[in-house]
Design a binder for these strands. Structure first.
Length: 300
DNA sequence: ATTATGTCCTGCCAGC
DNA sequence: TGCTGGCAGGACATAA
């Protein structure tokens, strides 16, 4: 559920709260939360130091260093590069929370990480257990990302995102525009909410075939994606309920600014026509039937 | 190869 | 009141 803006809010919190701290111990309370991990997660984490918190799309990771922060190679004098990272995906209901170690276990606490300084724990709480944590090696790429997510495309807020290349790949697809937007190997970080909001901003119906989209239309769509995500980030993300929270358990309030998502029968903020909900991939798509007319050659 | 569908979970809410 | 079905912001494996 958390999409790029919500994950970025969490990343910023983690960067502030765990960077430079050394892990004393970890505890896995539900095996499903570490189903993609190879090895024993507590063993892999103990004694490691977190340098920062990074993100691509909806994935975030904490690069792990051996020993204390600021470690340098004794031969070269260069800072030691993180060989691996604690990788996390929040799934539909995952939360990474910073809480005092004495705080009683949350109902859906899955993994607990404690630090040597005795300060706040990092806790992974996940009602539906679609999210997960794992320790993974870093891939040696220009932009280093953990090995398991090398197939995840750049997200529209990172510098490495190539607008022209995205347009080219999009036009080669034979599918609907929303399905393409949700494909994390084409563009990452976009989920159901921000796909609907960006399409509304670009006045595109979600079933528009990708192969007919012109480069200017794709540029408008990317602007819509970036604008809605940046605005959402400025308001702490979208929280329909207490499931989507930052590391301190606080909700964002971008839900008030959504134009169409979850607003069936409410007036389109642009033209006043009631917003409609249509079934899409066992989910929902919200749109304005006047601003975003369904194309003749609609694609599922 | 790309594209579409099924599946993993728990909780909430509307409707009966 | 209590049950049931539908729905929820995701990603992956597998099938076509």
């Amino acid at each position: 559920m958390p999409e790029l803006p919500e994950v970025e809010v969490v990343r910023r919190g983690l960067d502030q709260w765990v960077a430079g701290r050394t892990i004393a111990s970890a505890e896995v309370l539900h095996p499903r939360a570490v189903r993609r991990n190879v090895g024993d997660l507590p063993d892999q984490l103990k004694g490691r130091t977190v340098l920062s918190a990074e993100r691509r799309g909806k994935y975030l990771w904490l690069p792990l260093y051996e020993g204390p922060a600021g470690h340098v190679d004794p031969v070269t004098g260069e800072p030691v590069v993180a060989a691996d990272a604690l990788l996390a995906h929040l799934g539909m209901s995952g939360q990474l929370l910073m809480v005092d170690p004495s705080t009683p276990a949350e109902k859906h606490l899955r993994v607990r990480v404690a630090f040597t300084d005795g300060g706040p724990d990092m806790r992974f709480v996940d009602q539906r257990t679609f999210g997960h944590l794992l320790v993974a090696p870093m891939a040696r790429l220009r932009r280093p990302v953990p090995e398991p997510i090398t197939h995840i495309a750049a997200d529209p807020l990172e510098e490495a995102f190539d607008d022209a290349a995205f347009a080219t790949r999009l036009r080669l697809r034979r599918t609907g525009i929303k399905r393409a937007l949700l494909d994390q190997s084409l563009i990452s970080g976009v989920g159901n909410i921000y796909a609907d909001e960006a399409l509304w901003r670009a006045r595109l119906h979600w079933a528009r075939p990708t192969e007919n989209l012109t480069r200017p239309v794709i540029a408008t769509l990317l602007s819509g994606v970036r604008e809605v995500m940046t605005e959402a980030l400025g308001q702490g993300g979208t929280s329909f309920d207490s499931l989507y929270v930052n590391v301190n358990g606080e909700s964002g309030y971008f839900d008030r600014s959504l134009a169409v998502y979850g607003r069936r029968d409410e007036p389109c903020p642009r033209c006043g026509t009631p917003v409609i909900r249509e079934a899409f991939m066992n989910r929902s798509s919200y749109s304005c039937p006047k601003c975003q007319p369904r194309p003749r050659n609609a694609r599922p």
